[in-house]
Amino acid sequence: MGSAQPSDIAKVLLTEEQIATRLGEMAADVDRDYQGRDLLLVGVLKGAVMVMADLSRALQHETVAMDWMAVSSYGSGTRSSGVVRILKDLDTDLEGRHVLIVEDIIDSGLTLSWLISNLKSRGPASLEVATMFRKPEAAQADVDVRYVGFDLPNEFLVGYGLDWAEKYRTLPYVATLAPHLYS
């Protein structure tokens, strides 16, 4: 799976098995918390595709709907400024819905903080966040995240939705990228 050359990968941090196990645990928590309620999963493109697909299939919940948003945050280079533009909005009305934002990774938290306030203004019954990965050291905004798969070091990571120049997203594991590629 994926198209990485072995020389592109410095170190595997999380294996496919570790990710699948943790995803199953997160799905069980979501199932318990939303029992008897309709749930709308909102995926944030493009990174959340893997997490969204795997989480939704791991849920036992019968009444799960899915929708997608694409947002672009502006900043210098790889740093987010928190200035966000919606590239693709939701097709679903959030009024009275139980909404779970699904993210691949939270680093600065600035874009997610903006997204939460934007979606809250649409009148959902509840709004929570699930992320497969979080980089606590990179946080610049205090975001309340209900479900977290793994806390990761503030390094350049690829795989399982995380990309470098749109590459390596499809790797089934999470790894650090070899420095020769980006230094």
Rank of each mutant, 00 (worst) to 15 (best):
E128A: 11
S117I: 04
V64Q: 04
A28C: 09
V30A: 00
Y34M: 09
Q60G: 11
R97W: 01
E166T: 15
A141V: 11
S80T: 12
L162R: 11
S3T: 12
S183C: 14
T131P: 00
S117W: 00
H98S: 02
L162T: 07
A165G: 08
V71K: 02
G161E: 11
T176E: 13
F156N: 02
E155S: 08
F156V: 05
A27G: 07
P153G: 12
I106C: 01
Q140T: 02
N154R: 13
V30G: 02
D31F: 06
D163Y: 09
Y168N: 11
T170Y: 14
E95W: 05
L14S: 06
A125F: 03
L127C: 04
A178C: 13
A139I: 05
D151I: 08
V99N: 00
E16R: 05
M26C: 11
Y147F: 07
V145M: 06
A58K: 12
T111C: 06
V145G: 03
A165V: 06
S126M: 00
L162Q: 07
A53F: 08
D107K: 05
P124Q: 01
E16N: 05
T15S: 15
H98A: 00
W68Y: 13
G75L: 06
I105G: 05
E103S: 00
L181M: 13
F150D: 08
D104C: 02
S113P: 08
A28N: 10
Q140D: 03
S76R: 13
S81T: 07
P172I: 14
G109V: 10
R169M: 12
V102F: 00
S73K: 10
G109Y: 11
G109D: 07
S76W: 02
T176R: 15
D29R: 14
A70C: 14
R32S: 08
K88E: 04
E128C: 02
T170Q: 15
Y147A: 01
P124D: 02
L162D: 06
A138R: 12
G43N: 02
A58Y: 07
E62C: 12
L171P: 09
A48Y: 03
Y173W: 13
G77S: 11
V51C: 03
A10F: 01
T15H: 05
R169A: 10
L127A: 01
D89M: 09
A178W: 01
S108R: 03
N118Y: 14
D38N: 07
D54F: 07
D54A: 09
T63N: 14
M66Q: 14
G47V: 03
H98V: 00
K88M: 06
A178K: 08
F156I: 08
M50E: 03
L45V: 06
E166V: 15
A53P: 10
M66S: 12
H61Q: 13
L41D: 06
V12R: 14
A130G: 06
V71S: 08
A130P: 05
R146M: 09
V30S: 01
